[in-house]
């Protein structure tokens, strides 16, 4: 039964070892066929986005529907950008998700460390409280939250999205679980005996050890913030949107046209997909590490 910390360290190694030893069963043709089919189903809707996004309105209204990429892609993208400034929305999203990621990783590492390694009154109760709330959908608190934001005059401002998401109970839990085992208590005590301040201990001893888990948490948080829709929809509008709100606005615009919407969807989705493919190996590893259990 692997702990999180062991898994993060050992998953790649184990994989290497097992295949080298030839213990893993080798895939037959059936496996390949099924996996190729799954791959096609996974990718086809994305390809089809491009197909529709590259046709004019009347070219699409045909049977059979078009299957190949056409020439109107850039015209449609330009039209989508006229209807909704998606580039600004993407920048907004990068800013919002970045701030949320920074805040979450920082705050959660700090308190994850405290819960894992420091003895203090209320440690267990506070941690239990944190743990309990990971299972409650945060959107159940949106009504008072919305009323706050309205009273503060923050509706339609980005900070209304950033602030409530700055912390994550899950993040605290995640960091604690990692540090409990990854961080040798003796090392901390040695530092303490040497007279280093707690903050210095954190900076010089804890942070380097916590780094792999912080990276995984950062990736998960960024993806979550980037995809978040419900709360941003409540407090923002297409005038100052995140990419999801802007895209939804385009989809429900005055004159919803499939080709324009698909072209806009491409603009908002494909850059991320490229990053995803380039960093694919690391991301796959990160998600599997974040998820591993025995």
């Amino acid at each position: 039964m692997a702990t999180l910390e062991q898994t993060i360290r050992t998953v790649p190694r184990r994989r290497r070892r097992s295949s080298a030893a030839g213990r893993q069963l080798t895939a037959g043709p059936f496996t390949y066929i099924v996996l190729i089919l799954v791959t096609v189903i996974s990718v086809f809707p994305l390809y089809y986005t491009m197909v529709i996004g590259s046709h004019t309105n009347s070219e699409m209204a045909k049977s059979p529907p078009p299957f190949s990429v056409n020439t109107s892609l850039f015209d449609n993208m330009r039209e989508a950008l006229k209807q909704q400034p998606l580039f600004r929305d993407i920048l907004n999203s990068i800013f919002v998700s970045g701030m949320i990621t920074l805040g979450t990783v920082a705050f959660c590492t700090l308190s994850g460390f405290a819960f894992a390694k420091l003895r203090f009154r209320g440690n267990k109760i506070l941690f239990g409280l944190t743990l309990g709330t990971t299972l409650i959908p945060p959107q159940l608190g949106v009504i008072p939250l919305y009323m706050y934001m309205a009273k503060l005059g923050w509706i339609h401002h980005l900070q209304a999205v950033i602030l409530p998401n700055l912390v994550s109970a899950f993040g605290v839990f995640f960091m604690r679980q990692y540090l409990v085992n990854a961080m040798p208590t003796e090392l901390l005590e040695a530092g303490w005996v040497d007279g280093a301040s707690t903050f210095r201990i954190f900076r010089t001893i804890v942070l380097p050890i916590a780094r792999p888990a912080m990276a995984v948490l950062a990736m998960l948080t960024f993806l979550f913030a980037w995809n978040d829709f419900f709360w941003p929809l409540l407090v923002l509008n297409s005038h100052n949107a995140t990419v999801q709100v802007g895209l939804a606005g385009l989809g429900q615009g005055y004159i919803p046209q499939q080709n324009i919407i698909m072209a806009g969807t491409m603009l908002c989705t494909f850059p991320l997909l490229v990053v995803f493919v380039v960093l694919g190996k690391q991301i796959v590893g990160g998600i599997m590490q974040g998820a591993v259990k025995g």
Binding site: S111, K117, L118, F120, R121, P144, V167, V172, E189
Partner: peptide, 28 residues
């Protein structure tokens, strides 16, 4: 647990809990 500065522990958890209390627990 490490046998070190327990008071500092509150400083570590404070940022999380302040934000958490305002934007998570209280609205709930």
């Amino acid at each position: 647990y490490a046998l070190i500065g327990s008071k500092a522990a509150y400083l570590y958890v404070a940022p999380f809990f302040v934000v958490f209390a305002i934007f998570g627990l209280y609205p709930l």
